[in-house]
Simulated scan of single mutants.
Amino acid sequence: MSSTRRTVLGAAMAAPLLAQFTGAASATAAAGTLGTVSDGWVEVRWTQQAQALLDRFQAAVTAVAPAQPVQDAQGTAIRFPVRFGEGDPSLSSPSKAHGNGRLDGGVEVRTPNGTVRVAGLEAGLQEGLASGKCVVNGVDVGHHAVLRPDLGQGRLTTESVPLGKPMKVRITEVPLRPTPELLETFTSGFGDPGITVDTVLAHLTAEGVYTPPTS
């Protein structure tokens, strides 16, 4: 598999960002102005359209520990522990959520042409676009915005706690759609993917304890 294909496939699989409360904080954010996330996890469940794309390339996806596979009546997913996260979940307006973080574990994608192992998943969410970096077969890879998480379509639930205290936050069923940049890069490396910017590739669910900033 060429380096271009490894990069594209790696970026696409690494995009299980940290959405809602971990996802790129503003570079100008002052220290202490962002909350933190602990005891968190992110689960990415791909759709039939995404599975059809994997089948087209005879690709099999497995979890790299400590990430865990999830198989149930809803389909196939991978759950990643959150190593760290900081940001602003924008509870009153989820579409404005921003932040950054890192997931533990990774994914391995096997095709007849080779195996791609993606780990070191770092993700950023800013202005509704996900970008970040990862390690693909031991090589550091950065990627621009590859997915658009529609946080407004997700279902947000929070604990009722005193103002300023840590609270458990959970967002479910956030649709992830490809950006034009991802489609263009994919097409140049693999050919027409048969999907558009309106195709939902996966749904994301995330949970964690959000501790507001002290200042």
Score class of each variant (00 low, 15 high):
Asp104Trp: 03
Pro69Ser: 13
Ser90Met: 08
Glu159Ala: 14
Val64His: 10
Gly87Asn: 00
Val116Lys: 03
Thr179Glu: 04
Glu173Tyr: 02
Val118Cys: 11
Ala77Phe: 12
Ser160Val: 15
Val109Lys: 03
Thr7Leu: 13
Ala50His: 00
Ala30Trp: 00
Leu53Val: 05
Thr196Cys: 00
Glu86Met: 08
Met13Lys: 01
Gly120Val: 04
His143Trp: 12
Asp198Glu: 14
Pro66Ala: 02
Pro69Val: 12
Leu156Ser: 12
Glu207His: 14
Leu151Val: 02
Met167Asp: 06
Arg5Gly: 11
Glu127Gln: 15
Thr211Gln: 15
Pro94Ala: 12
Glu86Phe: 11
Lys165Met: 09
Gly191Phe: 13
Phe57Asp: 14
Gly99Cys: 04
Pro175Ser: 08
Val82Thr: 14
Arg6Cys: 08
Asp88Glu: 06
Gln51His: 02
Thr172His: 03
Thr28Gly: 00
Gln48Pro: 05
Gly194Glu: 09
Leu125Asn: 11
Glu184Arg: 14
Glu43Arg: 12
Glu122Cys: 12
Val174Ser: 05
Ser2Met: 10
Asn100Ala: 14
Ala24Met: 06
Thr33Cys: 06
Ser2Ala: 05
Val135Lys: 14
Arg56Tyr: 07
Pro16Thr: 13
Ser3Gln: 14
Gln51Gly: 04
Ala63Pro: 13
Thr111Ile: 00
Val64Phe: 11
Leu54Val: 08
Leu182Lys: 02
Ala130Gly: 14
Ala52Thr: 06
Arg56Leu: 08
Arg148Ile: 14
Asn113His: 11
Arg117Leu: 09
Ala25Cys: 04
Pro178Asn: 02
Pro213Leu: 00
Asp140Glu: 09
Arg83Val: 00
Gln49Thr: 11
Val70Phe: 09
Ala145Asp: 14
Gly138Gln: 07
Arg117Asp: 11
Pro94Cys: 07
Arg79Glu: 02
Gly114Leu: 02
Thr115Leu: 05
Ser215Gln: 12
Glu108Pro: 04
Leu151Trp: 06
Ser93Asn: 14
Gly164His: 05
Gly120Ile: 08
Gly191Glu: 12
Leu182Gly: 05
Gln20Asn: 11
Leu156Thr: 07
Val116His: 01
Ala15Val: 05
Arg117Thr: 15
Ser90Tyr: 06
Val64Met: 10
Gly99His: 01
Thr205Trp: 03
Ala73Val: 13
Gly164Arg: 02
Thr62Ser: 12
Trp46Gln: 00
Gly101Arg: 10
Pro212Gly: 04
Ala25Arg: 15
Met1Val: 05
Leu156Tyr: 06
Thr196Lys: 07
Leu121Tyr: 08
His143Asn: 01
Gly35Thr: 03
Thr4Ala: 13
Phe57Gly: 08
Val64Asn: 07
Gln71Pro: 00
Ser2Ile: 00
Ser215Trp: 02
Ala73Phe: 03
Ala65Lys: 13
Gly114Phe: 00
Gly40His: 03
His98Met: 12
Gly40Gln: 03
Asn100Gln: 15
Thr179Phe: 05
Asp150Asn: 13
Ala14Pro: 02
Thr22Ala: 15
Gly99Arg: 09
Leu182Phe: 15
Ala12Phe: 07
Thr205Ser: 15
Ala130Ser: 13
Ala130Thr: 12
Gly23Pro: 00
Gly194His: 09
Thr185Tyr: 10
Thr47Glu: 06
Pro66His: 04
Thr7Phe: 13
